[in-house]
Amino acid sequence: MKEIIRAGLAELGLLDQVPQEAPEQLAEYGRLMLEKNQVMNLTAITDPEQAARLHMLDSAALLLCADFQGEKTLIDVGTGAGLPGLPLKILVPSLQVTLLDSLGKRVDWLNQVCAQLGLEGIQAIHARAEEQALVKGYRDSFDFVTARAVAQLRLLGELCLPYVKVGGQFLAMKTTESASEVEEAAHCIKLLGGRAGEPVDYVIPGAQVTHRVLPIRKLAPTLKGYPRRWARIQKQPL
Protein backbone atom coordinates (compact mmCIF):
# COMPACT_ATOMS: atom_id res chain seq x y z
CA MET A 1 0.00 0.00 0.00
CA LYS A 2 2.81 2.38 0.83
CA GLU A 3 4.18 2.60 -2.71
CA ILE A 4 0.71 2.88 -4.24
CA ILE A 5 -0.07 5.75 -1.89
CA ARG A 6 3.27 7.46 -2.54
CA ALA A 7 2.83 7.21 -6.32
CA GLY A 8 -0.77 8.39 -6.08
CA LEU A 9 0.14 11.42 -3.98
CA ALA A 10 2.79 12.28 -6.57
CA GLU A 11 0.26 11.95 -9.39
CA LEU A 12 -2.11 14.28 -7.53
CA GLY A 13 0.75 16.75 -7.12
CA LEU A 14 0.64 16.47 -3.34
CA LEU A 15 3.73 14.45 -2.42
CA ASP A 16 5.94 17.49 -1.79
CA GLN A 17 3.24 19.09 0.38
CA VAL A 18 2.84 16.29 2.95
CA PRO A 19 5.16 14.84 5.62
CA GLN A 20 7.75 12.35 4.39
CA GLU A 21 6.32 9.65 6.67
CA ALA A 22 2.71 10.15 5.47
CA PRO A 23 2.62 7.29 2.91
CA GLU A 24 3.92 4.83 5.50
CA GLN A 25 1.44 6.03 8.14
CA LEU A 26 -1.47 5.86 5.70
CA ALA A 27 -0.45 2.33 4.72
CA GLU A 28 -0.28 1.27 8.38
CA TYR A 29 -3.70 2.81 9.01
CA GLY A 30 -5.03 0.89 6.01
CA ARG A 31 -3.51 -2.34 7.33
CA LEU A 32 -5.11 -1.82 10.74
CA MET A 33 -8.44 -1.07 9.08
CA LEU A 34 -8.47 -4.22 6.97
CA GLU A 35 -7.33 -6.30 9.96
CA LYS A 36 -10.14 -4.95 12.17
CA ASN A 37 -12.61 -5.30 9.31
CA GLN A 38 -12.44 -9.06 9.77
CA VAL A 39 -14.32 -8.73 13.07
CA MET A 40 -16.06 -5.35 12.70
CA ASN A 41 -17.91 -3.87 9.75
CA LEU A 42 -15.69 -0.96 8.72
CA THR A 43 -15.48 -1.15 4.93
CA ALA A 44 -16.77 -3.14 1.97
CA ILE A 45 -13.28 -2.93 0.46
CA THR A 46 -11.06 -5.84 1.48
CA ASP A 47 -8.25 -5.62 -1.09
CA PRO A 48 -5.20 -3.63 0.12
CA GLU A 49 -4.59 -2.04 -3.29
CA GLN A 50 -8.20 -0.89 -3.55
CA ALA A 51 -8.11 0.39 0.03
CA ALA A 52 -5.00 2.43 -0.79
CA ARG A 53 -6.66 4.00 -3.82
CA LEU A 54 -10.35 4.27 -2.92
CA HIS A 55 -9.85 5.21 0.74
CA MET A 56 -6.46 6.84 1.25
CA LEU A 57 -5.98 8.60 -2.09
CA ASP A 58 -9.65 9.53 -2.32
CA SER A 59 -9.37 11.23 1.09
CA ALA A 60 -6.06 12.87 0.12
CA ALA A 61 -7.68 14.48 -2.92
CA LEU A 62 -9.52 16.86 -0.57
CA LEU A 63 -6.23 18.74 -0.31
CA LEU A 64 -6.91 19.87 -3.89
CA CYS A 65 -10.13 21.54 -2.78
CA ALA A 66 -9.19 23.66 0.25
CA ASP A 67 -6.29 24.98 2.32
CA PHE A 68 -6.09 22.97 5.55
CA GLN A 69 -2.78 24.46 6.75
CA GLY A 70 -2.38 26.70 9.79
CA GLU A 71 -3.97 24.81 12.70
CA LYS A 72 -7.43 24.77 11.15
CA THR A 73 -10.19 22.72 12.77
CA LEU A 74 -12.15 19.93 11.11
CA ILE A 75 -14.96 17.64 12.15
CA ASP A 76 -15.66 14.51 10.11
CA VAL A 77 -19.36 13.69 10.49
CA GLY A 78 -20.35 10.03 10.27
CA THR A 79 -16.67 9.15 10.01
CA GLY A 80 -17.14 5.36 10.03
CA ALA A 81 -13.66 3.88 9.64
CA GLY A 82 -12.16 7.39 10.01
CA LEU A 83 -12.50 8.59 6.43
CA PRO A 84 -11.57 11.19 5.32
CA GLY A 85 -10.69 12.80 8.67
CA LEU A 86 -7.91 10.47 9.81
CA PRO A 87 -5.98 10.52 6.51
CA LEU A 88 -6.27 14.32 6.44
CA LYS A 89 -4.71 14.48 9.92
CA ILE A 90 -1.80 12.31 8.74
CA LEU A 91 -1.33 14.47 5.65
CA VAL A 92 -1.69 17.82 7.49
CA PRO A 93 -0.38 17.31 11.07
CA SER A 94 -1.33 20.85 12.16
CA LEU A 95 -5.01 20.15 11.43
CA GLN A 96 -7.09 19.71 14.59
CA VAL A 97 -9.47 16.84 13.83
CA THR A 98 -12.62 15.51 15.48
CA LEU A 99 -14.02 12.20 14.24
CA LEU A 100 -17.74 11.86 14.98
CA ASP A 101 -19.60 8.56 14.82
CA SER A 102 -22.74 7.10 16.38
CA LEU A 103 -21.26 3.63 16.95
CA GLY A 104 -19.27 3.37 20.17
CA LYS A 105 -17.20 0.35 19.10
CA ARG A 106 -15.94 2.20 16.03
CA VAL A 107 -15.06 5.25 18.12
CA ASP A 108 -13.08 3.11 20.58
CA TRP A 109 -11.16 1.52 17.69
CA LEU A 110 -10.46 4.91 16.08
CA ASN A 111 -8.99 6.26 19.32
CA GLN A 112 -6.81 3.15 19.57
CA VAL A 113 -5.58 3.63 15.99
CA CYS A 114 -4.75 7.30 16.61
CA ALA A 115 -2.71 6.25 19.65
CA GLN A 116 -0.94 3.48 17.73
CA LEU A 117 -0.01 5.91 14.96
CA GLY A 118 1.20 8.47 17.50
CA LEU A 119 -1.22 11.15 16.31
CA GLU A 120 -1.93 14.17 18.50
CA GLY A 121 -4.58 16.82 18.01
CA ILE A 122 -7.20 14.29 16.94
CA GLN A 123 -10.08 12.74 18.88
CA ALA A 124 -12.98 10.42 18.11
CA ILE A 125 -16.26 11.04 19.89
CA HIS A 126 -19.36 8.89 20.21
CA ALA A 127 -22.46 10.95 19.44
CA ARG A 128 -25.30 11.45 17.00
CA ALA A 129 -24.58 14.25 14.54
CA GLU A 130 -27.90 16.05 15.00
CA GLU A 131 -27.44 16.09 18.79
CA GLN A 132 -23.76 17.04 19.00
CA ALA A 133 -24.39 20.01 16.68
CA LEU A 134 -26.40 21.63 19.47
CA VAL A 135 -23.50 21.46 21.94
CA LYS A 136 -21.56 24.64 22.71
CA GLY A 137 -18.08 24.45 21.26
CA TYR A 138 -19.29 22.40 18.32
CA ARG A 139 -22.02 24.55 16.81
CA ASP A 140 -20.79 27.19 14.32
CA SER A 141 -17.23 26.30 15.43
CA PHE A 142 -15.24 24.43 12.75
CA ASP A 143 -13.23 25.68 9.78
CA PHE A 144 -14.13 22.53 7.87
CA VAL A 145 -16.76 19.82 8.05
CA THR A 146 -16.39 16.71 5.93
CA ALA A 147 -18.82 13.92 5.14
CA ARG A 148 -18.33 10.90 2.94
CA ALA A 149 -21.79 9.55 3.68
CA VAL A 150 -24.18 8.27 1.04
CA ALA A 151 -27.13 10.37 2.25
CA GLN A 152 -28.64 12.98 -0.04
CA LEU A 153 -27.12 16.45 0.25
CA ARG A 154 -30.27 18.06 1.64
CA LEU A 155 -30.15 15.57 4.52
CA LEU A 156 -26.38 15.85 4.97
CA GLY A 157 -26.62 19.63 4.80
CA GLU A 158 -28.84 19.82 7.86
CA LEU A 159 -26.53 17.49 9.79
CA CYS A 160 -23.27 19.17 8.79
CA LEU A 161 -23.77 22.90 8.14
CA PRO A 162 -24.59 23.69 11.80
CA TYR A 163 -21.00 22.71 12.73
CA VAL A 164 -19.35 25.12 10.26
CA LYS A 165 -18.17 28.50 11.52
CA VAL A 166 -19.00 31.59 9.47
CA GLY A 167 -16.36 31.74 6.73
CA GLY A 168 -15.72 27.99 6.94
CA GLN A 169 -16.70 25.24 4.52
CA PHE A 170 -18.69 22.03 4.40
CA LEU A 171 -16.96 19.66 1.96
CA ALA A 172 -19.36 16.94 0.81
CA MET A 173 -17.69 14.01 -0.97
CA LYS A 174 -19.92 12.75 -3.76
CA THR A 175 -19.97 11.03 -7.15
CA THR A 176 -20.14 12.93 -10.42
CA GLU A 177 -23.83 12.01 -10.68
CA SER A 178 -24.66 14.41 -7.86
CA ALA A 179 -25.52 17.56 -9.84
CA SER A 180 -29.24 17.26 -9.09
CA GLU A 181 -28.51 17.00 -5.36
CA VAL A 182 -27.22 20.58 -5.25
CA GLU A 183 -30.42 21.87 -6.85
CA GLU A 184 -32.60 19.82 -4.49
CA ALA A 185 -30.57 21.04 -1.49
CA ALA A 186 -30.61 24.73 -2.48
CA HIS A 187 -33.29 25.67 0.06
CA CYS A 188 -31.60 23.72 2.86
CA ILE A 189 -28.21 25.29 2.14
CA LYS A 190 -29.55 28.85 2.06
CA LEU A 191 -31.77 28.41 5.13
CA LEU A 192 -28.86 27.09 7.21
CA GLY A 193 -26.53 29.93 6.24
CA GLY A 194 -24.58 28.36 3.39
CA ARG A 195 -23.79 29.01 -0.25
CA ALA A 196 -22.75 26.29 -2.70
CA GLY A 197 -19.52 26.80 -4.61
CA GLU A 198 -18.24 25.25 -7.82
CA PRO A 199 -17.89 21.45 -7.66
CA VAL A 200 -14.35 20.05 -7.82
CA ASP A 201 -13.90 16.81 -9.80
CA TYR A 202 -10.79 14.63 -9.49
CA VAL A 203 -9.62 11.27 -10.80
CA ILE A 204 -8.40 8.80 -8.18
CA PRO A 205 -4.92 7.69 -9.34
CA GLY A 206 -4.86 4.15 -10.68
CA ALA A 207 -8.59 3.62 -10.18
CA GLN A 208 -10.08 5.26 -13.28
CA VAL A 209 -12.76 6.63 -10.98
CA THR A 210 -13.82 10.28 -10.92
CA HIS A 211 -15.26 11.69 -7.70
CA ARG A 212 -16.59 15.12 -6.83
CA VAL A 213 -16.37 17.44 -3.85
CA LEU A 214 -19.22 19.88 -3.30
CA PRO A 215 -17.90 22.87 -1.30
CA ILE A 216 -20.46 24.87 0.66
CA ARG A 217 -19.27 28.04 2.37
CA LYS A 218 -20.94 29.26 5.57
CA LEU A 219 -22.10 32.87 5.29
CA ALA A 220 -24.25 33.20 8.41
CA PRO A 221 -24.81 31.30 11.69
CA THR A 222 -27.32 28.45 11.50
CA LEU A 223 -30.80 29.34 12.68
CA LYS A 224 -31.94 28.11 16.08
CA GLY A 225 -33.97 24.90 15.82
CA TYR A 226 -31.63 23.18 13.36
CA PRO A 227 -30.64 20.46 13.00
CA ARG A 228 -33.91 18.74 13.83
CA ARG A 229 -34.21 15.15 15.02
CA TRP A 230 -33.05 12.59 12.47
CA ALA A 231 -36.51 11.06 12.02
CA ARG A 232 -37.89 14.53 11.19
CA ILE A 233 -34.99 15.28 8.81
CA GLN A 234 -35.68 12.07 6.91
CA LYS A 235 -39.46 12.51 6.87
CA GLN A 236 -39.50 16.18 5.96
CA PRO A 237 -36.24 17.18 4.25
CA LEU A 238 -35.68 20.92 3.89
Rank of each mutant, 00 (worst) to 15 (best):
Q208E: 15
Q236L: 12
R148D: 03
S102R: 06
R128Y: 07
V150C: 08
G118R: 05
Q17C: 02
F68L: 13
I233W: 12
Q38G: 11
D101E: 09
L15P: 00
N111P: 14
Q152P: 10
L171V: 03
T46N: 14
L134W: 15
K165E: 02
Y202N: 12
R106G: 05
S180D: 15
A27T: 00
C160H: 05
C160Y: 00
L15K: 00
I90S: 02
R217L: 05
E181W: 11
F144C: 05
Q112D: 14
K165Q: 08
D47N: 14
L42G: 05
L95T: 07
C65E: 10
Q236V: 07
F68I: 02
L219R: 00
G30R: 13
V182N: 01
P93T: 08
P162I: 12
C160P: 01
R139I: 11
R229C: 01
V203T: 15
L26E: 03
T43I: 05
L155Y: 13
Q123D: 12
M173S: 05
G168T: 09
A231D: 15
E120I: 09
G193V: 01
Q69P: 00
F144W: 09
A10W: 01
K174E: 14
Q38E: 14
T176W: 06
T222Q: 04
M1N: 00
L26Q: 06
V135Y: 11
L62P: 00
L192N: 02
R195S: 08
A10D: 14
W230K: 09
V145D: 01
E198K: 15
K235R: 14
A231E: 15
L63A: 14
G197R: 07
R232G: 00
P93A: 06
D16Y: 02
K190Q: 14
G78A: 02
P87Q: 13
L161Y: 04
Y202H: 10
Q169G: 04
A7T: 13
L42M: 02
S180P: 01
E11L: 07
A51R: 03
G206Q: 09
I204E: 14
A186Y: 01
P199D: 03
D140H: 06
A147D: 04
L100N: 06
F144M: 08
A27Q: 05
G8N: 09
T43A: 09
Q208N: 15
K89F: 02
V77M: 04
K105G: 07
K218I: 01
T222A: 03
